[in-house]
Design a protein around this nucleic acid. Structure first.
Length: 873
RNA sequence: GCCAGGGUGGCGGAAUUGGUAGACGCAAGGGACUUAAAAUCCCUCGAGCUAUUGCUUGUACGGGUUCGAUUCCCGUCCCUGGUACCA
């Protein structure tokens, strides 16, 4: 009788051991090559979910593997600790955000340690700590000095009821999430980073460094967010000077249609919209229209069924190329934050302009014909012609291919001083002001005399005051905190007010990967020497939901800090060298239907043994596989799984069930499966322990082995090769684990030939290799088995096994034989068998003879070591 | 609409360069052990024929290239994600 596999005590034992031995702490004195492994840090919600388990298990495999390969691994962990849930908890339960957050961190840290994840806890950071956010304030001020930060008015979602600004996700169909009352658009002066100044650099970074190493999808989304587009600026002149303005510039990608312009459309937010109408008989109408459009929320304006509307301003402008007078409209579909907020309208060649012209009965003028032989008639057109063609009605450009005309006309504009080629980006500047409490205060003071005054660096950090009240209504707690707001002006010493907005929490997550390199540095946000040593992150892992937001801001911030001189230009300009985006963890949903036919979701525990609901007695139905969520009740608590199967089984399952980038479907039976596998390995080790310990490692020639011994020897090396290939760079942990299972299946059937020491040695090497390979996936049980097998030290620091090139070679190969491309049999042949011999063996095969009988052999294709295909008819 | 990715057994998934489709696991069925059950072990497992060695068919669908296609090309359908008045 041997001891059963009982994971829990083994797991506690080795977690303690790793912590005592500081196994996964970075070695600062090491001269081994560095490897910086990072997973996206979590928001400390208080409880770990399966998505975390998956993300951090994947990262842990990579970190452990790299450590075993001899790298000096840095694998830090921290907390993205500012954010809205803490404030909600404060409002709902009266607990202070700080206390709530720190206690959540404590709980989650405990859970992570129970998962056996190898982190360097000395580097732990929490972004809500003043020693973290003080540097963020400094970076902001230095960027401000350099002109990379500025203030401007921007629209926010404003709730009258709550007297506060809401995030986009707190606004549902124009009403707030809490009371369901209307949310209006309000203009506030807010702080912005000039991310647009880095648009071209961010694109270059993708081209030069990320294209090959980041998932295609992410690269694509980043590119489209930057949205570079080549076009031309065209300056239209106003008929008369209005409020000091004489020009109305537009951006167009189609300067070839310039002669087809029949009107102009301005965004409702365009600074000239109201000014143009002032003094005309359209004044009231335009005012009303602009008011109406501005009141509509962003979501509605972006929706598909939003009706295109516009109104004439009563003014005209002049097309520089032909002096044509065109009416200026205000249109609700023109975006202020793309291009110049003004669009030259060419109804014949743009669908929106076409519909607009039809609706308001504006002229349509064709300037491109499909080709020389076909023409378009403005009077009978049913939609805009947006394809390529030949220029007409365009004076000296007539007859030219429009693609060429785009270039030529842009050059012509430049020559005449009417505009010229230009590049436009979709990327917008980053608004970092948030009207919230639980964030880093923006370090600025407003003085009646001196206007905007940055807080002097030696007065940082601007601490978040603790003594504030949290209420659902009545606005920002910071703005109501008198002792925070009232201050003196650093310039003139007079009374002044502090900025009460805090930073967007993307600010903290934009540079945490830099802070980890020197987490306790007190002379600045980062120690340049540490950055030079550790950056960039060699492997970054996280959710696809951050494909643009976080990853774009971090890339920007990295360059910004580099430009501000925080670390040298010799460091890569990209923070994350390689990126892996892991899929979601999903599970079947279970539900019953209520009297209205709406689903009511159930947890597995709500269901009795007959498949009925314990709540309402109804038959429970199985719904779609969906992302685990609280609302669908299909979540699985990691703690419960760990208690039932052990950590190693939980980890092994999430790694085995599907490749990391795919969504993973959670199945308890699947965990049973991997648990069974670990038990089989465990039992095998228990049963053969004495023989394994007694045997020596295999050193002799394979000739001394039994036939089965030879096979096992070969398979050992093949498995090492295969698993290494799967793990290294490819992250195909599912196939790596499958190979270990196959290996185990062979080992379990193997018995050393009686009296054959070489066989016993090969068995020992096989088991040691298996335990070593598996140790990156299921570390605790492997540590224990390693020790039981009489091995020195911790498997976590034992080198990853290597394989012998000669040992993996097959002595005989199976050759596939086809007739006319169809499989008709296989034959065994010695390795390195010549083409002629292969052909001979193929023809000697009974079944092959049957298939070629009475036919003429036209051709024989021989792929060495693989197959023979006989073409006969 | 546009862009991208995908579609392989009952299920999750393998097949790294065009060369034996379905590794490994789950589920299912059968058997051994047991008084019995659990656990464990062994066997079967794409579909259809067939007496067993065999044959036909099969990687969403329709074509093509090739001695040979899950893999390459063209077209169609469906799914998933991103994006959407971007001038």
């Amino acid at each position: 009788m041997t001891a059963k596999y009982k994971p829990n005590s083994i797991e506690t034992k080795w977690q303690q051991y790793w912590e005592e031995q500081r196994t996964f702490y970075t070695r600062e004195d090491s001269d081994a090559p560095k490897f910086y492994m990072l997973e996206m840090f979590p928001y400390p919600s208080g409880r770990l979910h399966m998505g975390h388990v998956r993300n951090y298990s994947i990262g842990d495999v990579v970190a452990r593997y790299k450590l075993k390969c001899g790298y000096n691994v840095m694998h830090p962990f921290g907390w993205d600790a500012f954010g809205l849930p803490a404030e909600n908890a404060a409002i709902e339960r009266g607990v202070h955000p700080a206390g709530w957050t720190y206690s959540n961190i404590k709980d989650m840290r405990g859970q992570l340690q129970k998962l056996g994840l190898g982190y360097d806890w000395d580097r732990e950071i929490a972004t809500c700590h003043p020693e973290y956010y003080r540097w963020e304030q400094q970076i902001f001020l230095r960027a401000f000095e350099k002109g990379l930060v500025y203030r401007k008015k921007a629209l926010v979602n404003w709730s009258e009821k709550m007297q506060t600004v809401l995030a986009n996700e707190q606004v549902i169909d124009g009403v707030d999430y809490r009371y369901g009352l209307p949310v209006v658009q309000k203009e506030l002066t807010q702080w912005f980073f000039k991310t647009t100044a880095y648009a071209e650099q961010l694109l270059d970074g993708i081209d030069n460094e990320l294209d090959e190493n980041w998932p295609k999808r992410v690269v694509l989304e980043q590119r489209s967010r930057i949205g570079k587009s080549h076009g031309a600026k065209v300056v239209f002149t106003l008929e008369e000077e209005i409020d000091g303005e004489t020009e109305l510039p537009v951006f167009t990608t189609r300067p070839d249609t310039l002669w087809g312009v029949t009107f102009m459309s301005l965004a409702a937010e365009h600074p000239m919209a109201l000014k143009l109408a002032a003094g005309t008989d359209k004044d009231t109408e335009v005012n009303a229209f602009v008011q109406k459009v501005l009141a509509e929320d962003k979501r509605k304006r972006g929706s598909e069924d939003y009706e295109k509307q516009g109104v004439f301003t009563g003014r005209y402008c002049v097309n520089p190329v032909n002096g044509t007078r065109v009416p200026v409209y205000v249109a609700n579909f023109v975006l202020m934050d793309y291009g110049t907020g003004a669009v030259m309208a060419v109804p014949a060649h743009d669908q929106r302009d076409f519909e607009f012209a039809k609706k308001y009965d504006l002229p349509i003028k064709v300037v491109i014909h499909p080709d020389e032989n076909s023409s378009l008639d403005a009077a009978t057109m049913e939609s805009a012609y947006t394809e390529d063609g030949v220029q007409v009605n365009s004076e000296q450009f007539d007859g030219m291919n429009n693609r060429d005309a785009i270039e030529k006309i842009a050059d012509y504009l430049a020559e005449k001083g009417w505009g010229g080629k230009t590049i436009n980006y979709r990327l917008r500047d980053w608004c970092v002001s948030r009207q919230r409490y639980w964030g880093a205060p923006i370090p600025v003071i407003y003085c009646d005399k001196c206007d905007v005054v940055p807080v002097p660096e030696d007065q940082l950090p601007v601490m978040l005051p603790e003594n504030v009240k949290f209420e659902a209504e009545g606005g920002s707690p910071l703005a109501k905190c008198e002792e925070f707001v009232h201050t003196t002006c650093p310039k003139c010493g007079g009374p002044a007010r502090r900025e009460t907005d805090t930073f967007d929490t993307f600010m903290e997550s934009s540079w945490y990967q830099l802070r980890y390199a020197s987490p306790r540095y007190t002379d600045g946000p980062v120690d340049p020497a540490a950055i030079e040593k550790w950056l960039p992150v060699d492997q970054y892992i996280g959710g696809i939901e951050h494909a643009v937001g976080h990853l774009m801001y971090s890339r920007f911030y990295h360059r910004l800090m580099q430009d501000l001189g925080y670390f040298p230009k010799s460091v890569s300009s990209e923070p994350f060298k390689k990126l892996l985006t892991q899929g979601m963890v999903c599970k079947e949903t279970r539900y019953t239907l209520d009297e209205n036919g709406n689903p009511k979701w159930h947890t597995d525990d709500d269901i009795d043994e007959n498949g009925n609901s314990r709540i309402n007695g109804e038959k429970v139905l199985t719904g779609r596989v969906e992302k685990m969520s609280k609302s669908k009740y299909n979540g699985v608590d990691p703690e419960a799984i760990m208690a039932r199967y052990g950590v190693d089984s939980a980890r092994l399952f999430v790694l085995f069930a599907s490749p990391p980038e795919n969504d993973l479907v959670w199945k308890d039976e699947g965990v049973d499966g991997v648990h069974r596998f670990l038990s089989r390995v465990w039992n095998m080790v228990q049963q053969r322990k004495e023989a394994l310990v007694a045997a020596a490692s295999f050193t002799g020639s394979p000739d001394s082995l039994s036939a089965a011994g030879k096979e096992l020897h070969k398979l050992t090396h093949q498995t090492i090769m295969g698993v290494t290939g799967d793990v290294d760079g490819r992250f195909h942990f599912n196939t790596a684990i499958a190979k270990c299972m196959e290996f185990m299946n062979v080992i379990s059937k193997f018995t050393p030939a009686a009296g054959n020491d070489a066989d016993a040695s090969v068995q020992k090497d096989a088991v040691l290799a298996l335990v070593n390979l598996l140790s990156v996936f299921a570390p605790h049980v492997c540590e224990e088995m390693w020790q039981q097998l009489g091995q020195e030290g911790s498997i976590s620091t034992v080198p990853w096994p290597s394989y012998d090139e000669d040992a993996v070679k097959e002595s005989t190969i199976t050759i596939a034989i086809q007739v006319m491309g169809k499989m008709r049999g296989t034959v065994e042949a010695p390795a390195g068998c010549s083409k002629d011999e292969m052909e001979k063996l193929a023809f000697a095969h009974d079944n092959i003879q049957k298939h070629i009988e009475g036919k003429t052999v036209r051709k024989v294709i021989v792929v060495p070591g693989k197959l023979v295909n006989i073409v006969a008819n």
